[in-house]
């Protein structure tokens, strides 16, 4: 196996050894679908609220992964001198970041597949009706949220600060993004703000595609914007030591 392959595989094993991270990113979304599946009894109803539960489960898992787990891990790698130590070997430390992102995106996809399948097969939640829109929303959402998470990791002086900032962003996003409560029950100004947050735009796009319509261009544009701006800023500002 090449150095990059070994690095990615080793990082993957380390991720799985952290029970907190695995529970938050895969266990929790699946548990949410199961719990709300039991409570809401979706059946074959077409009530738009039924798109809320699986979308919320996905958004919650991805937000944990991108805003919490990834920044903390990367900042701790810098804090512990792991990136610096690696820079004295022929392996570039940037590959460690790439490996982390690959693993995180892989896990996000696994969580999405599990949520969709468990929800559908176990509790008769509908499958995403506009599948193209769903894939677009999911990929752009991943890109936007990880870009923001990387930016946190880039500038946080320590792992503790990265965790603090990440958790802060996480909860603010949940409130504004219509994750805590469905957007239709929130005051309109909150929803309007949420339209311009990455998690809010992600959540609304997911629900739209689940219900069968194409996500709103505004939401996809917001996700693309975060990806580019936060991604470039993270690349420029990332501190290796």
């Amino acid at each position: 196996m090449s150095g990059t392959g070994t690095l990615t595989f080793t990082e993957f094993k380390l991720f799985l050894r952290d029970p907190g991270a695995t529970i938050a990113t895969i266990g929790l979304p699946v548990a949410i679908v199961v719990v709300f599946g039991l409570i809401a009894q979706p059946g074959s109803g077409t009530d738009p609220i039924m798109t809320y539960f699986p979308a919320m489960a996905l958004a919650l898992g991805l937000a944990q992964l991108a805003l919490n787990v990834t920044p903390t891990t990367l900042a701790s790698y810098r804090e512990k001198g792991i990136l610096r130590r690696m820079s004295t070997t022929p392996m570039r430390p940037a590959r460690l970041l790439t490996a982390q992102l690959l693993i995180s995106i892989g896990l996000a996809v696994a969580a999405a597949v599990l949520v969709v399948l468990v929800g559908h097969l176990g509790f008769r939640f509908t499958l995403p009706q506009n599948f193209g829109g769903f894939v677009a929303a999911f990929l752009l959402g991943c890109a936007a949220l990880f870009a923001v998470g990387l930016l946190v990791a880039a500038v946080a002086p320590s792992a503790r600060v990265a965790t603090g900032v990440g958790v802060g962003l996480f909860f603010v996003s949940l409130v504004f993004g219509g994750v805590f409560m469905p957007a239709e029950t929130l005051p309109p100004f909150l929803v309007r703000i949420g339209d311009f947050t990455p998690l809010g735009a992600f959540m609304q796009s997911l629900r739209a595609s689940w219900g069968g319509t194409m996500p709103e261009p505004l939401h996809l544009a917001v996700l693309g914007g975060y990806t580019i701006v936060a991604g470039l800023a993270a690349a420029r500002l990332f501190r290796w030591e």
Partner: peptide, 22 residues
Amino acid sequence: LQESQLPERLKVWEALHLYASF
């Protein structure tokens, strides 16, 4: 390096296997 560490859950053989691959 002074004060450099490794991930807590990385095993001895994994660390060596990883660094050898570089």
